[in-house]
């Protein structure tokens, strides 16, 4: 095959970002007239293979091995290296998941081929794809081109392609094998666990007033707290606010925190980084106050104010209190 999509398992089904990677592969295959294979592997490989075989791909590869039952970066990188050597794809596509962040650079190091990560778009130039990545806190983008013979490893940022755009089909499943030894795995892992849930469940909140680093310092947090109180809202936050210890981690919204879908998400001094946005993009309405007119939050907000939140928020709280 020409394109290999490496799938990821989430609770026995395909990870949403693996579906998005299949959509990416179908798109690239159309543009360049290439064939696609999807690799189902790891625990529950059979279930993943069955699900992948209902998509329009040329072939599904199914790989089971006892050393792949549990994730390890060494084992997974070694397995993918061997699959790439056996199947000789030109493109290896994945979603940019936390797991991919962990083991794909290793694959790149081992096969000495480029890993173009967290791609947000591609276009074809002279018959080859050029990949676009975000740099400088997503304020700029850069076009990146491989400089060596195939394969190239590519991961796509969340929502670059749509999971529901995947075309259905029926694909044959082929079992493949790799040779892994326990000694190749340097690390030992314990079972994953969920951090103590904390005091709040933001996922059911109607209104969230969310605080970003733009609040400036811990002493200013009450400004947002008072607005939240006046609106009957829960307080949310971006990661840096939690990192600094200004709010507890149970308030964090984003890829490593909670996912929320309130009627209103009121973003105060939040730039709109992808890892934050994935946690709040289901909100019905987004209102943002940010002093930087170029902040990416203004690409997704419904209403925006360019200004100093430290000036606006107290006035707004006052006005809302007067209303009620």
């Amino acid at each position: 095959m020409d394109i290999l999509v490496v799938l990821e398992n989430r609770n026995g089904a395909l990870h949403r970002m693996s579906l998005e990677a299949i959509a990416a592969a179908q798109s690239l295959a159309r543009d360049l007239n290439l064939t696609v294979a999807a690799l189902a592997w790891g625990p529950q490989a059979k279930d993943l293979a069955r699900e992948a075989a209902t998509k329009r791909v040329d072939e599904v590869l199914s790989l089971e091995h006892e050393l792949l039952e549990k994730y390890s970066s060494d084992g997974y990188a070694e397995a993918i290296k061997q699959v790439i050597e056996q199947e000789a794809p030109r493109y290896v596509l994945v979603g940019h998941t936390y797991m991919v962040r962990d083991y794909f650079p290793k694959v790149s190091a081992r096969i000495r081929k480029p890993f173009v990560g967290d791609v947000v778009a591609y276009r074809i130039e002279d018959g080859s794809p050029v990949f676009t990545r975000q740099v400088f806190n997503a304020k700029l983008v850069v076009d990146v081109a491989p400089q060596v013979a195939p394969p190239v490893l590519v991961s796509f940022q969340s929502a670059t392609f749509q999971a529901d755009a995947v075309e259905a089909g029926t694909a044959p499943v082929r079992d493949i094998t790799v040779a892994l030894e326990a000694e190749q795995i340097k690390t030992q892992s314990e079972p994953p666990f969920q951090e103590a849930a904390g005091d709040v469940d933001l996922s059911s909140a109607e209104v969230i007033v969310s605080v970003g680093r733009g609040i400036g310092k811990e002493e200013n947090i009450p400004l947002a707290g008072e607005l939240a109180e006046a609106m009957g809202a829960e307080l949310g936050s971006s990661r840096p606010v939690v990192d600094a210890g200004w709010l507890p981690s149970s308030r964090q919204v984003g890829s490593s925190g909670q996912s929320v879908a309130p009627k209103l998400y009121f973003a105060l001094g939040i730039s709109g980084a992808i890892q934050h946005v994935v946690g709040m993009k289901g909100s019905k309405n987004v209102v943002a106050i940010n002093k930087d007119p170029e902040a990416p939050i203004f690409e997704i907000a419904d209403y925006g104010v360019v200004g100093d939140l430290l000036e606006i928020v107290p006035k707004l709280t006052e006005a809302i209190k007067e209303q009620s």
Binding site: R112, T132, V142, F298, E299, A301, D302, Y303, G304, V306
Partner: peptide
């Protein structure tokens, strides 16, 4: 193995309705 071809500002789809004016108006 890979290299930058061109760095640029990504053209944004602005769909945000901006609220403007002095502090009281905002």
């Amino acid at each position: 193995l890979q290299s930058w071809e061109r760095l640029y500002v990504h053209k944004k789809e602005k769909r945000t309705e901006m609220i403007e004016g002095d502090l009281n108006q905002v």
